Simulated scan of single mutants.
Amino acid sequence: MAGALPDGDPVPRDGSLPDEATREVGKNGFAVYVHVPFCASRCGYCDFNTYTASELGGGASRDEYAETVLAELALAARVIEPGPVDTVFVGGGTPTLLSTDDLGRILDGIDRTWGLAPGAEVTTEANPESVDPAYLRRLRGAGFTRVSLGMQSAAANVLRVLDRKHTAGRAPQAAIEAREAGFEHVNLDLIYGTPGESADDFERSLRAVVDAGVDHVSAYALIVEDGTRMAGRMRRGELPYPSDDVAADRYLAAEAALGDAGFEWYEVSNWARGDGGRCQHNLLYWTGADWWGLGPGAHSHVGGVRWWNVKHPSAYAKRLSEGVSPGLARELLTDDDRHMEDVMLRVRLRDGIPLDRVDATGAARALSDGLLEPHAYDEGRLVLTLRGRLLADAVIRDVL
């Protein structure tokens, strides 16, 4: 089950924002995130704000969910006028548990409310077992341009430890089906460092990703979150805790295999074939754009104000049925907050960050330790080397 939301100041009942926050909304880009909180089953490592049928209880219906999201969108339209939407990302949960008609209604509502920019990137996440060729064709026809599939591994033993329900070969096959359905942009997600995963297991996963012909790969080290089933198993000694050394070896293997296949890193945990393969939605997050998050537990950011919705789908639906903002709390980011977050995110990007945005002493130390690219440094930018990517968190601490 997802962790508790942070504390903050109350959100006005109508969801209104300070004038200074809305004055230049969308100036640096505008995105919409839609959270779909439903899952057929819960993975052992997952602490996202998601619910299986048995966990939902009363007052929340998957069949009525699109209408509830559209009610929040109507409220949002009264609060801001951001101009065209550059990207839409539907995440979860498992968004593809909704019908393509419902996903299309939500996308159409966003277009009618704010307008989609020409060539807007529209992504949905999907579990491999939740889609088939016909569903993917309808999804493409509804206006989605990109699909992100949760593969995690091509090794059956690793999938069992993660409590994933799809077979080892299903995710690459779903990626091929997505391309055949007309999706030019397809991502496969990998998790590495799972207990019991061998180097050969991960190499097999990387080969499967490359052979699937996708243009984007995300690969993240396993993080064990408190309160998850996996954390309990580790606490009881049933599974070993992840190893930092193994995670580093896996990352180097990913860089080598993906680089040989024509992928380039553009964020520490993300690789794409060419600039066109990069996830534009995430880039907007990472470069300080505004976005509105629709759905229970969704976070939003507009003009230095960040807020988050109530977590449970029934509480979310109840507030909107009463004409009240589903926002639980919010915070006004200070200049120092925004600078810190800007550094934390941009340092992880291949494009890096101007040196005048970071601590000079820390940057010089990172350069001498071989963590920064000398050529970029000479040109006034901080860009991580491969070794620097392995130690990105330490570099961020130094340059802050």
Rank of each mutant, 00 (worst) to 15 (best):
V186D: 14
A261H: 09
A289M: 04
A181R: 00
M234G: 01
V395F: 14
R229A: 02
V161N: 00
H312D: 01
G277I: 10
L17N: 09
T385Y: 07
S314H: 01
L73N: 08
R306G: 11
L149W: 12
L367Y: 10
A66K: 00
G59I: 10
W291Y: 14
G380Y: 02
N28T: 08
A208W: 05
R112K: 15
W265A: 12
R357H: 07
N157S: 08
Y241A: 13
I396K: 04
N157T: 12
G227I: 02
R319F: 07
L332V: 12
A272E: 10
P128C: 05
L139E: 06
L391V: 04
E225G: 05
V305H: 14
D398H: 14
V383K: 00
G327I: 10
L386W: 11
Y377K: 14
Y51V: 01
E264L: 07
L372M: 14
L283Y: 01
D369V: 00
E72S: 13
G141H: 04
W286A: 00
A174M: 08
H299T: 13
I110G: 06
G193T: 10
L384S: 08
T334F: 05
A329Y: 02
W114F: 15
T100S: 05
A76C: 13
A40H: 09
A21G: 00
